[in-house]
Design a protein around this nucleic acid. Sequence first.
RNA 1: GUGAGCGUAGCUCAAUCGGAUAGAGCACCAGACUGUGGCUCUGGGGGUUGGGGGUUCAAUUCCCCUCGCUCACCCCA
Length: 417
Amino acid sequence: MPVKTVKGTRDIFYPDIEKWRFFEEMARGVLKTYNFKEIITPIFEYTEVFARGIGEDTDIVHKEMYTFKDRKGRSITLRPENTASVVRAYLEHKMYAEGGVKRLFYIGPMFRYERPQKGRYRQFFQLGVEVFGSKSPYVDAETIELVINILEKSGLKGLSVKLNSLGCEKCRPVYRENLKKFLESVKDNLCEDCKRRVDTNPLRVLDCKVPSCKETVKNAPNIQQSLCEECKEHQDRVFHYLETMGVKYEVDPNLVRGLDYYTRTVFEVVSENLGSQNAILGGGRYDNLVKELGGPDTPAFGWALGIDRLVLLLDDNAFDFSNKTIYVIPAGDSIDYCFKVAKSLRESNLPAEVISDSKSLKKALNFVNRQNGRYVIIAGESEAEKGIVVFKDLDKRTQKEIGFEKLSEELKDEIDK
RNA sequence: GUGAGCGUAGCUCAAUCGGAUAGAGCACCAGACUGUGGCUCUGGGGGUUGGGGGUUCAAUUCCCCUCGCUCACCCCA
């Protein structure tokens, strides 16, 4: 095997691609009904966009980016996520000047240099949304409801929605210090990783899976009880709207997200049917990012969904993979006639394939069988002379003659759509 | 970056304690069968056993290195 895909990347093709397209088209439809507009940003940006947008201290920026120098020596990075790029675009095109609320969605590949495993790839695909210009908790709730809607239309089971608030620039630092003090006092009971995190990312300790850490952290100060009045009020209203909208959720005070920019609402949807990479989407509010990147003070909310992981969960049985192609088979020197027939079918929006390379009718029929094909049209010399075709339904084991002119009309009754 | 498991034909897998020309099923190609299908029968093409090195009279088998895949850790979608 001379050349292979790069580690952590893969080819996606039939039949899996059918599931991708189903999801993508369904999601686009839903997004349209919430008045989201698509944005396509470049898959690479100046490294600075991500370094500043995601946060220098995050793992993503630290060790997971595909960064290289272009021919002029500028540092370029393949996007590890898309929020930073969308914010950059929002600012570059001064979209804030329109006033009001801006709703954008994107869909496309992201790149992270990580060790691949189930549900985790170096090139993976995300569908995401960003809402700019609203600090209303209604936006938090509705944007979450939007993605729950998409998930429900995907037919997924065994999902749970986890919700938390990380506070704002006023209450978070206070909480962070209190937590740090607490963790220092119980440091001996923590795992090695967590001992390190006490300084680098104390909130992350709350989410550690090591049993001893879980136990230790049970008595840690709870962010839910440390929220300031405004944050508390915001969260209560998010809860209220979610309940009105019929979205079921659970509050998880230990939910922290890996990106620096989140404020207040954070959420995550996990599946019990994936491996250890069980988060299929995550997101939250980021009220300071736009300002930090040099824009006007603009509150924002967004989420990103892992399409690879979602497709992994889609039930094969929910898809019709049956072969609806009408195979057009020549007999004798009738390939010209076959094309006429196929053309006619295609004009009527019926999928047709001419079998031009088969040495015999028998072999052609054999081929169709192996393709799990059902419909065959024999368009041989004698049919061409009479201006008819022979239509066969291989499942029903029936065949009949149809006049060329009546082809699409008659087939509409025969073909199972 | 760390750890574990696995790499044999296109696919799924065999190959005894280290032993002969590495086999089978499915798939593919051809014929029986020159205009009517899934069956059957016959024949055929396919492999540097992931790669490199070592031990041995002899390596798919044992050892080392390396690459790849998978899962887990870290982290995340």
